[in-house]
Amino acid sequence: MSNRLELATVEWRRVSPKQIGVELVGTLISALVLVTVGVFVLVVIESDLGWAIIGGSVVLHGIMAIFAARRVRSIGYQLREDDLVFRRGIMWQRIVAVPYGRMQLVDITRGPVARALGLAELKLVTAAAVTAVTIPGLVSEDAEELRDRLVELAESRRAGL
């Protein structure tokens, strides 16, 4: 693992472990949908393909569930002097740096499961669509605090496009 992407200078802030719950519920729902499709194929169409769908989806989602904790642990962010850095991913890693002066919009969204667990998702938008930085699994109060802080930082460093 010596070739992993890592920024030596950054002490990553992790998101709440409760986010694992959100991920697990999401995995469960998508597994249930696929299993329903499989049962439908078995009962209505009477094809053995249904077993393959059920088996495949159970195995796939099982793996996803096992890695949920690691996936959540891989999410990190940090506010540096001039920019926010964000990273996520185990196999496919991505690290993004967004200068404060470039943020156009800071958005908070809460899904139903996340709301039940008291979590929120923070989305950063710049003029570039590819930036795509979404920090999930923030405790609601933290998310609001972070949003206010980012808005303030962005206001003080605003520049043109």
Partner: peptide, 29 residues
């Protein structure tokens, strides 16, 4: 530099084996 919106580093499994990365300078579409 004045038009850079953000910067991203990416790495997939094959790239990790080779010890290389991809880097993208984000600009408007």
């Amino acid at each position: 530099h004045a038009r850079l919106q953000s910067i991203a580093l990416r790495q997939g499994p094959l790239e990790r084996r080779l010890g290389v990365n991809r880097i993208q300078a984000h600009t408007v579409v």
